[in-house]
């Protein structure tokens, strides 16, 4: 068994890293399935516009969150979703194609490095380039205590 004397910090050089932008279509079936899963019965949020937390689904396409964490060298078993913020500029409509831009906005430490906070900022744009919204996710990484197994 290997004992680490200090928590391994995430390399701060990753601050500002971006994921290649990708396009996601807001498929009618996906919107309806999401409405079912969250118990949403209002037809507006099934067939017309995305409900407030649907941006999280769009940004997570193709395991993008996992790919970011792996690029940072983070052990996926040690992460927690600590906070989530959404800002809304225009409704995301059923059937539209959304361009998703994700970047590592910040990495910081708490409790002498036992906890690290990674902020991932995601912007959603329409086909004409207009900003639809922003998602800011705070991921907490729990590093092992020095000497812990």
């Amino acid at each position: 068994m290997f004992f680490q004397s200090t928590p391994v910090a995430i390399d701060r050089a990753h601050i500002g890293d971006t994921l290649a932008p990708f396009d996601v279509v807001v498929e009618p079936a996906a919107l309806a399935a999401f409405a079912d899963a969250i118990g949403e019965t209002d037809p507006v949020y099934r067939h017309e516009i995305a409900p407030p937390t649907f941006m999280k689904v769009l940004e997570g396409k193709d395991n993008s969150s996992r790919r970011i964490m792996e690029a940072l060298g983070v052990d996926l078993r040690r992460i927690l979703h600590a906070e989530q913020r959404f800002e809304y500029h225009a409704p995301i409509r059923c059937g539209e194609t959304v361009t998703v831009n994700r970047r590592v906005a910040d990495i910081s430490s708490r409790k002498e490095g036992l906890l690290e906070l990674v902020l991932i900022e995601t912007q959603f744009k329409s086909a004409t380039g207009g900003l639809l919204g922003t998602s800011i996710q705070t991921v907490m990484v729990r590093n092992p205590k020095p000497g812990a197994t």
Binding site: I38, G39, E40, I49, A50, Y88
Partner: peptide
């Protein structure tokens, strides 16, 4: 999402400016 439903039951999503948890 459930907290979001509590909000959209009273304000349509188009009126929401920001939402954090």
């Amino acid at each position: 999402a459930r907290l979001g439903r509590l909000v959209t039951a009273h304000f349509p999503a188009q009126q929401i400016l920001s939402f954090s948890v």
